[in-house]
């Protein structure tokens, strides 16, 4: 993967990715173990836990952006479009939908999309904020 982007330098409409990934049955088992999910509510026989696909998108977001101190993931949405079986290869793409700065804090909204060979599987939006570095002062504009 190319170098990480500086969160404070992200620009609206900037596209990050695509990033390739794959989730196998062993990944699903590890995710279920890590969320303490009961089998009935976790990965049934034929498809990956839907929020594991969302977590994969968040992983790619973390990979793509240099996380500054104090960054907070404030909000998240997901649309689960299709059930996807283990062993699927994915392509994740991110787009900066909005960035703004107010009272010493930078806000960002990033659109997330996960596709497999048949098209989009999950779409979402992640909202984050981080305090501006102290030497940046208090900004008032928006991008």
């Amino acid at each position: 993967m190319a170098g990480k982007r500086d969160f404070f330098a992200l620009e609206r409409d900037e596209v990050l990715g695509p990033y390739e990934a794959r989730l196998d049955a062993a990944d699903a088992a590890a995710y279920l173990d890590a969320t303490a999910a009961a089998p009935a509510g976790g990965a049934p026989s034929g498809w990956l836990p839907p929020l594991q696909l969302g977590a994969l998108l968040v992983e790619k977001l973390i990979d793509a952006i240099e996380i500054p101190p104090g960054l907070v993931h404030t909000g998240q949405s997901f649309d689960f479009l299709r059930a996807v079986p283990p062993g699927t290869g994915f392509s994740a793409q991110l787009r900066v939908a909005q960035v703004s700065e107010r009272r010493g804090v930078r806000f960002g909204t990033v659109e997330l999309e996960l596709r497999d060979a048949d098209g989009p599987c999950v779409r979402g939006r992640a909202s984050v904020l981080a305090p501006l570095p102290s030497d940046a002062g208090t900004a008032g504009g928006s991008a």
Binding site: L51, V72, T74, G75
Partner: peptide, 26 residues
């Protein structure tokens, strides 16, 4: 958030994985 998705999956099954939507704030 995984707990929410797990609860929805347990109640609704594959329709949650193939058509469900979720929007939250922490």
């Amino acid at each position: 958030l995984a707990l929410v998705s797990e609860a929805m999956t347990a109640a609704i099954g594959e329709r949650w994985a193939a058509g469900g939507s979720l929007s939250v704030r922490w």
